[in-house]
Design a binder for these strands. Sequence first.
DNA 1: ATTTGATTTAACTAATCAGTTAAATTTAAT
DNA 2: ATTAAATTTAACTGATTAGTTAAATCAAAT
Lengths: 214, 214
Amino acid sequence: MSPEEKKRTEEIIIGVAEKVFIRDGFSGTRMQTIADEAGLNKALLHYYYRSKQKLFYAVLKRLAPKLFAPVLGVLYEELPFFEKIEKFVHRYIDEISQKNPNLPLFVISEMEKNADDIIPILVRAIDSREISPIEIFRRDMEREIKAGNLREMDHKQLFVSILSMAIFPFVGRPLIMQLARFQNHEYDLFIQERKKFIVEFVINSIKIQKTGVE
Amino acid sequence: MSPEEKKRTEEIIIGVAEKVFIRDGFSGTRMQTIADEAGLNKALLHYYYRSKQKLFYAVLKRLAPKLFAPVLGVLYEELPFFEKIEKFVHRYIDEISQKNPNLPLFVISEMEKNADDIIPILVRAIDSREISPIEIFRRDMEREIKAGNLREMDHKQLFVSILSMAIFPFVGRPLIMQLARFQNHEYDLFIQERKKFIVEFVINSIKIQKTGVE
DNA sequence: ATTTGATTTAACTAATCAGTTAAATTTAAT
DNA sequence: ATTAAATTTAACTGATTAGTTAAATCAAAT
């Protein structure tokens, strides 16, 4: 095979592995399943990636930048604070909807079970810049509070609230569907409508209304 | 052994099994682990509960009412809407903090992987009353909107938002700790402070301020 | 003291799965 | 055509684990 062919096989494997790992989790994934879904055989998987662990890490390393960069990147843009929140929420929900709605639960579950191995890989993707995302967020808030546009509040509480509202509908889908009595087909629409809701909900809560009178 | 002794063994097994299942998940749990942590042997586990599946279901059936009743129960109480939200959030975070912070992720993961078996068991616990919790919530909102105390908005979006803010810090702990740069010991305090934050945050967002002038 | 049921011990089976190996076959490049 | 690398096949090993079994021991009730 040509080197391009070789590369393509490698990519087929890692692409299918990504899909299966996200769907079934690390321990739920069978090498045989990956081989089957890739239309290849188990021996070839080990020929390219020596072990299940190594294949998993290869998947994670490829995934990590795609996972955080597009969303966290918004925090580093030069934007008015409230617009930044809007763009952040929309970007997150759009990305996950389009990419793979099971991604958040996968990342969280594996971080929980496998902390020591996985967290360092993900942290490199989170901490790719000089200043951390949460510190950027804190500074933005500080500026807005001084300008009288924002109520004073703990920046981590606000940050986690926005994250929670955006991420949890993906993670907690089966639970939410029962509690809030959703039909299967309703849920996607609910998530799309959620973008606008979250932004309005958050800004309503934190923004100080200018009276106009002064 | 006396019947009391017998009962005690049964309870030791199911109690330890609950702890282990929640910690390691169904497929991550080994019968040997349960036996070891209960100070018993594997044969006895099968003597009382015939299989891992049956033991798991027994755990779930015992868990389900304890899981939802104390929290959802608040929704059925006769309380002013905003106080109800406050009590709901405090109750949820207090219950989970004290009981087992891994519970939400466990429930969600197992619902996701094992939907057909598990959801019916949990749904019986959610739907123990004539009117569903979400319908109660909708009626409360409708009343408050008519009374001019509450902005108009989709009741499911609001309900999911409150749930998200309360549950996600438990589920997403490892991710949040990285993103928001928490040290281990800070997180418990953060969650305790979160009760007040969520209530204020939500009410600020949804309440219509009476001008006093009228 | 005898009986009954609870519990232990230890060895076993059967299934699953990661990983290995070696030989055969295919493909592309030279 | 020859070579080298890619791919397949198929059988294997070794580890893990749920579940079984049978014999032995123990404790409580009668």
